[in-house]
Structure formats: C-alpha cells, structure tokens
Simulated assay, not measured.
Amino acid sequence: MPRDAPAAPSRHQRADGAFELGFGTSPRGTVLRTLFQQAPLRLLFPDPEPGEPPTAALLNCAGGLAGGDALRQAVRLEPGARATLCTAAAEKVYRSLGPATRIETRLSLGAGAVLEWLPQETILFDGARMTRRMRAELAEGARLLAAEMLVFGRAAAGERMRRGAVLDSWRLAGPDGLLWADALSLDAPAEQLAAPFGFGGAEAMATLLLAAPEAEAMRDLLRTLPEQAPGAATLPRPGLLLARWLGGASAVRRATRAAIAAIRGAALGLPPRLPRLWTT
C-alpha cells in the first residue's frame, strides 16, 4: 500500500447473539427438546422451586449492548408444555456511536401451552439507540404472560435519556390471525419524555400482557392491588389483558412485580410469588 494512501476507517466489533429454545412434554412433564445458543447469549436452567415450571435463565455475557449489536431470541413450546423465561439481571443498552441495537424475539406456543416471558428491566443510557421487535404466536388454548420494562436513563445515577432513539414493537397472533399490535417510537426523547401529555417526565414504563380466558378477572384483580405507580389496565379484546405503568423507576418496578405475582397465582395456577430470578 502506498504510504500516502488514506487509512481504512476503524470498525468496532459488534455482538451477534442468538438462542433457540424448545420445550416439549413427556410422562415426566415438560422437558427440554432443543437448545441452540450463540455468544454473548447463554441460557442456564436452575432447579425450579416446588410448584414452578421449568425455568430458563437468560444471560448476556457481554454485560450490556452497544450500537450495532444484534440479538435473535426464539422460544417454542409444544402443545401442553409449560415454562418460564427470565433474565438474571437488568439489561443495559449503552450510548450508540450511530447504529441501533437490534433485538428480535419470537415466541411460539402450541395448543394448551403456558409461557411466562419475564425479563427484568432494560436500562437505556443517554444516547442509546434500540430497535426491538417481539412477535408471539399462540395456538388454541395457549396462555402467555409477558412483561417488559424500559428505564429511560440510569435512574440511580440521576441520568435521564435526552438523546437517542427507541422503536419497540409488539405483535400477538392467535389461531385466526393478528390479535394485537403496538409500537413505541421515541426519536426526540428529551421532548417526548418531558411532554405533559406524553410521558410526563416519567423515568420508566412497563407493559404487561396476558393472553388467557381469565383476562377480565385479572383486570379487576389488578385494580384491587395497592397503587405503586400510575397505571391502567384494559381489555383490547376478549381474553387479552394489557396493563401499563409510568413513573419513577423503583415505583414502576414494584408495580410490575406485584402484578406478575398476583396474575401468575390467579390465572396460571402457579405460586403467587415472583420467579426466584427476580428476587436473587
């Protein structure tokens, strides 16, 4: 190469993590059928406590996500299988130098299957850019309890998310097609998060979705819980409960924890407590 040739621009190393997880049934109950994992994602399988279904603990060994990183996550439950998936800690999305962090999640539930998708909160650093897409497909009689929480900045350090962008998309499909679709788009977080008719200065937001015949009763149950953070619960359609909370990060987390414990006990036939990974 000639000495006067311009140096090639440096390229940052990007994470490309993935996992595929499948559960089936046997005379022993729910069993692991398939497992594929690609760094930095790892799945661990702690012994479930009495009354709990098989639990998968999702770990990001990189310690967080940077701009340009990509994750692909897939969970499949055969008919009648039951499982819980949690993360071992909050996920962190760091300030980006340009590209977005991309997260794609697909959940597939066979007839009569029951899945809890309960990752802990995602913390968006100031300047973070994230595109996250979730798609869940439910066969007849399947039940899904899913919750996601976003924290807009490092609340414990007094940081607010003022720059960056977020696109967070949900799609839920049943045997007859699309049941629910929703998307959050932030491209000017300083203004949108502060807007009195937007997020009203909230530090965090949580979304809880329950697909089950008991959805209406669970809406009424949530309304009886002590108010931890401003929130509301509604039924977009029969058999589907949507709850959301906005407010301080600690208060939103408490509200989400209380709702998960109450719903898994009343609608899923599980112990009315948080999964162990949420408390250790």
Results as ranks from 00 to 15, higher is better:
residue 1 M to K: 06
residue 7 A to H: 11
residue 17 G to N: 08
residue 19 F to V: 00
residue 19 F to T: 00
residue 23 F to T: 02
residue 28 R to W: 11
residue 35 L to T: 07
residue 41 L to R: 01
residue 44 L to V: 09
residue 44 L to E: 13
residue 45 F to A: 11
residue 46 P to M: 09
residue 46 P to L: 08
residue 46 P to K: 09
residue 47 D to Q: 15
residue 48 P to R: 10
residue 50 P to K: 06
residue 53 P to Q: 08
residue 58 L to Q: 14
residue 58 L to R: 03
residue 59 L to H: 12
residue 61 C to A: 15
residue 63 G to M: 09
residue 65 L to D: 03
residue 67 G to W: 13
residue 74 A to P: 01
residue 78 E to V: 04
residue 78 E to N: 10
residue 79 P to T: 11
residue 82 R to Y: 01
residue 82 R to H: 13
residue 84 T to I: 13
residue 84 T to E: 06
residue 86 C to A: 12
residue 88 A to R: 08
residue 93 V to C: 14
residue 95 R to Y: 11
residue 96 S to E: 07
residue 98 G to D: 03
residue 102 R to I: 09
residue 103 I to K: 03
residue 105 T to V: 14
residue 106 R to K: 09
residue 107 L to C: 02
residue 109 L to H: 05
residue 109 L to N: 07
residue 110 G to Q: 07
residue 110 G to M: 08
residue 112 G to Q: 07
residue 112 G to I: 05
residue 114 V to E: 04
residue 114 V to S: 02
residue 115 L to W: 02
residue 118 L to Q: 05
residue 118 L to W: 07
residue 121 E to I: 06
residue 121 E to A: 12
residue 125 F to C: 10
residue 125 F to G: 05
residue 126 D to S: 02
residue 130 M to S: 10
residue 130 M to I: 10
residue 131 T to N: 12
residue 132 R to M: 08
residue 134 M to Y: 15
residue 135 R to K: 14
residue 135 R to F: 04
residue 136 A to C: 09
residue 138 L to H: 04
residue 142 A to I: 07
residue 146 A to Y: 00
residue 147 A to T: 14
residue 150 L to P: 06
residue 150 L to T: 01
residue 151 V to K: 01
residue 152 F to M: 08
residue 152 F to H: 09
residue 153 G to V: 01
residue 156 A to T: 00
residue 163 R to H: 14
residue 164 G to E: 10
residue 164 G to I: 07
residue 166 V to T: 06
residue 166 V to M: 12
residue 170 W to G: 02
residue 170 W to Q: 01
residue 173 A to G: 11
residue 174 G to R: 03
residue 177 G to D: 09
residue 179 L to I: 08
residue 188 A to W: 05
residue 188 A to E: 14
residue 194 A to Q: 10
residue 196 P to E: 04
residue 197 F to C: 13
residue 198 G to T: 14
residue 198 G to A: 13
residue 198 G to K: 07
residue 199 F to Q: 02
residue 203 E to A: 15
residue 203 E to P: 05
residue 203 E to M: 06
residue 204 A to H: 00
residue 207 T to P: 06
residue 212 A to N: 03
residue 214 E to H: 02
residue 218 M to R: 04
residue 220 D to C: 10
residue 226 P to K: 14
residue 226 P to W: 14
residue 227 E to G: 06
residue 231 G to C: 09
residue 232 A to T: 13
residue 233 A to T: 03
residue 236 P to Q: 03
residue 237 R to G: 11
residue 238 P to M: 06
residue 241 L to G: 01
residue 242 L to M: 13
residue 243 A to V: 01
residue 245 W to P: 03
residue 250 S to E: 14
residue 252 V to W: 03
residue 253 R to I: 00
residue 254 R to W: 05
residue 255 A to M: 09
residue 257 R to E: 15
residue 261 A to Y: 04
residue 262 A to G: 09
residue 264 R to M: 09
residue 266 A to H: 12
residue 274 L to R: 11
residue 278 W to S: 00
residue 279 T to W: 00
residue 280 T to G: 13
